[in-house]
Design a protein around this nucleic acid. Structure first.
Lengths: 146, 146
DNA sequence: ACTATAGTTGACGTTTACGTAAACGTCAAC
DNA sequence: GTTGACGTTTACGTAAACGTCAACTATAGT
C-alpha cells in the first residue's frame, strides 16, 4: 500500500542534513548557511532538520545556480518568486532576465580568459627560450611576464 | 648634456603616486596597498612617496599580473626573486611554473564557463517557450533553471 | 545512567583586493 | 594667516561564501 512513497530514486521521502551534504558534496554547515540566508526551510523534529524531497530539489537548484555563477541572493529571488502559486509569469520573467545577464557576463569572462590564455602561452614560450639559451640580457626578461 | 633623462616617453625620471594612479587607471589607495603588501618600495622625500622609473616598471608588471589572474602573493614572489642579481634562473623557473599553473587553471575555468553557457542557453530557450505558450505544468519549470 | 554520535546555535575567522573615514602634516598661493 | 589641494598613517569596513570553534542539546545504544 502507498506505493507512492517508493516511486523515486531510493524511495526516501525525507533526508537528514548529512545525507544531503554527502549527496551533493558540500558540508552540512553550507546547507545550514543556505538556511540562514533563507534559501531552504526544512521542517523540524524538535530542533533536528528534516529535509523533504522538495527541500532536496531546492538544494539541487541552489547548487546548480552556484555552478552557473549566480549569487545566493539572486537564487533566493528566483526561488522566492517561484513559491507562491506556480505558473507565476513574474518568476519566469525574472529568471529569464537573470539568465541573460549571467550569460552576458560569462561570455565576457570567457573572452577575457581567452586573452589571458594567449598572453600566458606567449609568455611561457618566451620563458622557455630564455631558460634554454642561458639568461640573456636582464631587460628582456621584463618583457615576458615578470 | 645628459640626454638619457629624456630618451623615454616624456622624459620623466620620477613620478608621484597620483600620476601613476592616473596613468594606470587605479586609485592611489591601490598603489599604497601594493606597498603594504611589499610589492613596491618607492623612495621618500620626507613622507611623500617618490616613484622611480623602475618602480613604475614594477607597477606595470603587477597590473599585468593581476589581469592574468595571479594573486598578489605570487606576483610578489616573482618580483622578489627577480631583484637580487638578474639572470636568476630560479626566478624564471618559478615564473614559468606559475604561468603554467595559471594557464591550467584558466583552461579549466574556460571549460567550466563553456558548460555553464551551454546550460544557460538551453535554460533560456526553455524559459522563452514557457513564456510564449502560457505557463504549462508547474513541474516543467523546475527542469529549467529555478 | 553513561557514552557516543549527530545535530544545533552563535560568534568569530578566512580570503582577496581594496574602500573609506579619521585625524593630521605640508606646502604654495592668495 | 588662512584656504585649499594633496599627502600621510592607522585602522576599521565591505563583499561572498563559507570554515572553524566552542558550548550545548538530543537521541540511540549498551
Amino acid at each position: 500500500m502507498n506505493a507512492r512513497a517508493e516511486i523515486d530514486k531510493d524511495g526516501r521521502v525525507s533526508f537528514s542534513i548529512t545525507e544531503l551534504a554527502e549527496e551533493f558534496g558540500v558540508t552540512s554547515r553550507t546547507i545550514r548557511f543556505y538556511e540562514d540566508k533563507g534559501l531552504v526551510n526544512p521542517a523540524r523534529e524538535g530542533t533536528t532538520r528534516i529535509y523533504s524531497r522538495k527541500d532536496r530539489g531546492r538544494l539541487k537548484i541552489i547548487l546548480r545556480g552556484r555552478r552557473l555563477g549566480f549569487s545566493l541572493q539572486d537564487i533566493k529571488k528566483m526561488l522566492d518568486m517561484y513559491s507562491p502559486e506556480s505558473g507565476s509569469t513574474d518568476q519566469l520573467t525574472f529568471t529569464l532576465q537573470k539568465c541573460e545577464e549571467q550569460l552576458e557576463k560569462l561570455v565576457t569572462q570567457r573572452a577575457d580568459i581567452n586573452e589571458a590564455i594567449a598572453e600566458l602561452e606567449e609568455g611561457i614560450s618566451q620563458l622557455k627560450e630564455h631558460l634554454a639559451s642561458g639568461s640573456a640580457s636582464a631587460d628582456s626578461c621584463k618583457k615576458t611576464i615578470a
